[in-house]
Simulated assay, not measured.
Amino acid sequence: MSTFNIIATSAMGLEAIVAKEVRELGYECQVENGRIQYKGDEMAIARSNLWLRTADRVKIIVGEFKATTFDELFEKTKALPWEKFLPENAEFPVSGKSVKSKLFSVSDCQAIVKKAIVDRLRTKYKKTGWFEENGPLFKIEVALLKDVATITIDTSGAGLHKRGYRAGQGEAPLKETLAAALVLLTNWTGDRPFVDPFCGSGTIPIEAALIGQNIAPGFNREFVSEQWNWIPDRLWDEARIEVEDKAKYDQPLDITGSDLDHRMVKIAGENAFEAGLGELINFKQMQVKDFTTTKDYGVIVGNPPYGERLGDKEAVESMYREMGQAFAPYDTWSVYMLTSNENFEACYGKKATKKRKLFNGFIRTDYYQYWGKRPPRN
């Protein structure tokens, strides 16, 4: 087994949650803006892709070095052991980005990195012509930040938020990784009721069900690194057996998703069915003001409309007031709401126990947390 420098990339504000997930997999890590770095072997690459709920991608660092000239970028890239990663027929497109660096032309940096890799591989594979590039895919990225170049290979392929269950979606779907983070930031466990009163296409209830039964988010999809010759198929088989062994399929769940739009309720049901959770989640058409329950110690998580569009704000703030009134009688329930609306607490009628800044795509939002009474100890 080899040891790799691995990066799990993260949306802004979710780094601590991704780091907690990485540590729970058994890997020590360092946290930086937008990335969690750790060391691991081939099995760590497979397990990270299968298990990380809130990371965007899993990448391996091939090299990290200072580069202030194109010559330096070329020579230091060429000095890296590319033959360890890329077979002779590898398809290896190079993408790039540059922030606060002397080498600011991204297209030039991409071309230079590509040429340096080709030069290295020509020597190693004793080849004079072009490489066919008709084999497995290795997506390479050169990222320059303050004159330090980090060159990585993406092991995930499609972003990790693409779980493979989303048959349909609404106008502004919540990313699965953020939905999972919203659930993980609560005090919910699978033995308590869970409600999403703005379920849309069902992403939050589906992610809650996966968490409640400890089902790995990547169980239903493939990853680009499964095609690589230096990660044996048996490792992926072992990693997937671990996924099966750790799932708690017999954990009963009480999860409800509701929405004002009957079409979204139908789509949510189809998505849950696609995820293999069709029987476990109850979806229904309902307005939030009609919420009632006879249960205790439940958790409500929602991504309600924000009222960003002109004319929507008044209706949305009126709905926040109705929501506050509907939830008020249930003091054992905890409520968690994500919105960019700065008047939320005033409309809801109560100051949050805690709030956390998160980004929903490019929208800066706050996650308002209202903690209910603790259940009595047995």
Rank of each mutant, 00 (worst) to 15 (best):
P93K: 05
G63L: 09
Q110E: 15
K66P: 12
E83P: 00
K102C: 06
E83K: 15
T69F: 09
N89Y: 03
F65D: 03
N89G: 05
T69L: 10
D71Y: 10
T77K: 01
F65E: 01
L73Q: 07
K102Q: 12
T68F: 10
S101C: 04
K66V: 15
K84L: 14
E91V: 13
A79G: 12
E88L: 11
A111R: 13
I60H: 03
D108G: 03
F104H: 12
S101H: 01
S107G: 05
S105R: 11
V113Q: 03
Q110H: 04
S98F: 09
V58N: 00
L80R: 10
K97N: 14
P87F: 11
G63I: 01
L86D: 03
A79T: 06
L103K: 03
F104A: 12
E64N: 08
F74S: 02
T68W: 10
F70G: 02
G63K: 04
D108Y: 06
K59C: 09
E83C: 13
S105I: 11
F65P: 02
V99G: 00
I112E: 00
L73Y: 09
G96V: 10
F70Q: 10
F92S: 08
F65C: 06
K100C: 00
F74P: 03
E91A: 15
E88S: 14
T77F: 09
K66G: 04
G96Y: 02
E75W: 15
F92K: 09
E72D: 15
